[in-house]
Design a binder for these strands. Structure first.
Lengths: 195, 195
DNA sequence: TGATTCCTTGACCACCCGGTCAAGTTCTCG
DNA sequence: CGAGAACTTGACCGGGTGGTCAAGGAATCA
């Protein structure tokens, strides 16, 4: 049963479960991680888990929801009032990389959720939001004649593809400096191979 | 127990298991799909599965291995004797998209395998191979002064990021024409946004 | 202090999973 | 034809899963 009232102690425990779950899901995967693993890692009884969450699925959903919100907030903070649409894209790229560098678990969790029919729909909606943000800047840049007229949706997806891949390979796996990777991603997206 | 000798009938059954497994894994995910589901879909007893495969894991590994080989073969056929390194990259992109369009299940399976600690290492090695192919062409193009000097490994990863994303979003999910998507991917990779 | 709510325990349950295997059937080939 | 190999059956097993719950301890009120 999900509790509406949580004392400070309860909030701490809930967040501890969230953190521990995220860490184990990222490390071993969602299905191979049991609820017993999670409570065992904390050192509490299994009932604790079900005091704070209705199910294992709910914990993952909560992770997906809060992660998306945090990332989005970070991105919007980074944009500030930047008037140049191309610079807004650059800043968005940097902000995303920086956030993922600080929340590596979340990256793995997203990757899994995309492959699971239960969670893919939620994730899809989240992605759609990020994509439309990027597409908006692209449309503005096209209207200003800054970039050639092309399908903004497709360009946004290509950009996200680059970001996702470089984040995984350099930021998550190799622990490279975020600013260096961001620069590479920006340069590739803006100029391509021949630019 | 894995059998060395397979009659034609046995080969058919084995491939049927491979196909059915691939389809179910892609649809519902690996962990949520049980061996009983697979044999049930075919309408045979569970023992049949274990006559051809040592384990459920082995079926997936087999899928990963054969998929990788097929894709690679297709790519190399597409390259032919093309002397221009940039054109080789373009052809590689087209070939990959075309192959995935014909093997949608494999795309989902790869995506899952990347998130599972048991299969990620194998997948990683496969990716490394594709990446080094691309990087080779890039280095040649740099030596010829066709593209600016940059880290070829990073460029290769960015290119693969674009291909992966556009494949997923347009070819797999929206069933768009492969040639159109390939053109988009090529144009983005070569010219970027501003080129 | 007692009463109430919040939190925790961990044994327990029903279910399903991957995998085994003795027995039976079908095929191949001498 | 018969013998042996290739294939199939499906009941069965040990073990782990997500989830429940009656009972007990700790905080916070009155």
């Amino acid at each position: 049963m999900v509790r509406a009232k949580l004392t400070p102690r309860g909030k701490d425990r809930r967040e501890q479960l969230l953190r521990t779950g995220a860490s184990l899901f990222a490390e071993r995967g969602f299905h191979p991680t049991s609820v017993s693993d999670i409570v065992g890692a904390i050192g509490v009884g299994k009932g604790v888990f079900y005091w704070y969450f209705q199910s294992k699925d709910e914990l993952l959903s909560e992770l997906l929801k809060s992660g998306h919100h945090e990332l989005r907030k970070r991105q919007q903070q980074a944009l500030g009032d930047e008037p140049d649409p191309l610079r807004r894209i650059e800043r968005g790229i940097s902000a995303s990389l920086a956030w993922f560098a600080e929340h590596r678990d979340y990256f793995s969790i997203i990757q899994f959720a995309a492959t699971d029919e239960t969670f893919a729909p939620v994730l899809h909606r989240n992605e759609e939001i990020g994509l439309s943000d990027t597409a908006r800047h692209l449309k503005e840049a096209m209207a200003d004649g800054r970039i050639a007229d092309q399908d903004p949706d497709m360009l946004a997806r290509a950009i996200h593809g680059v970001i996702g891949r470089l984040t995984r390979d350099y930021v998550i796996e190799r622990n490279e400096d975020v600013d260096v990777v961001a620069e590479l991603a920006q340069s590739f997206c803006l100029r391509g191979l021949t630019g």
